[in-house]
Amino acid sequence: MHSVAILTISDLWVERGESDLLNGLSFSARSGDVVHITGANGAGKSTFFKALLGLLPILSGSMTFNGDSLTQQRQNFLNNTLYIGHSAGLNGALTVMENIRWYLPKCSEKIVEQALSELSLGAFAETQLHALSAGQVRRVALVRLWLSEQQIWLLDEPFTALDQGLISMLEAKMAAHVASGGIVILASHLPLAHLSYLQVEL
């Protein structure tokens, strides 16, 4: 059932400020893989995502997506990618619903409402983001995963500010995503309890 690698990283080095990071990171991900990137603070977990997204130039090494150089089809790669970083990436002046509509204008009302109630945000659909607590904002960011159309998820510390119940829900969501052919690449210092994954140490 295992097909060819969708995303291949080989011997990746990135220069950031005073130091060279990633130490020749190499791995490849096929559809159905969860890649768990671990490492101490400052080892370059976020840097790796930024290099992947084209926010940082790479020093050496190569990245391929569907067999071709990733850097030459960045737009195509980004269209297939959902990235959630340290900051939620949500607009404080807009309501929860408006934020979701901004990211996913085509999603049907019903599905959005269902996802919101699953994450116990049902009552806040029309609340402006800056009136929500940090944990609630974090959950709104996760709604994007519930409604995602993209194949590849890039999650930088997705478990921050989540309680145990939500962590399990998120892991189940990731499992469902990879089961339907997706790829999840996440950086976290927590181990994953309910998932089989490929661990990459930075």
């Binding site: 084209g54 970083g85 900051s87 404080g92």
Partner: peptide, 18 residues
């Protein structure tokens, strides 16, 4: 400034749109 602070600016860059 605000989109920079709340991370939406990064999301614009990685949205796949021009």
């Amino acid at each position: 400034k605000e989109s920079y602070a709340d991370g939406t600016l990064t999301q614009l860059v990685v949205s796949g749109l021009s």
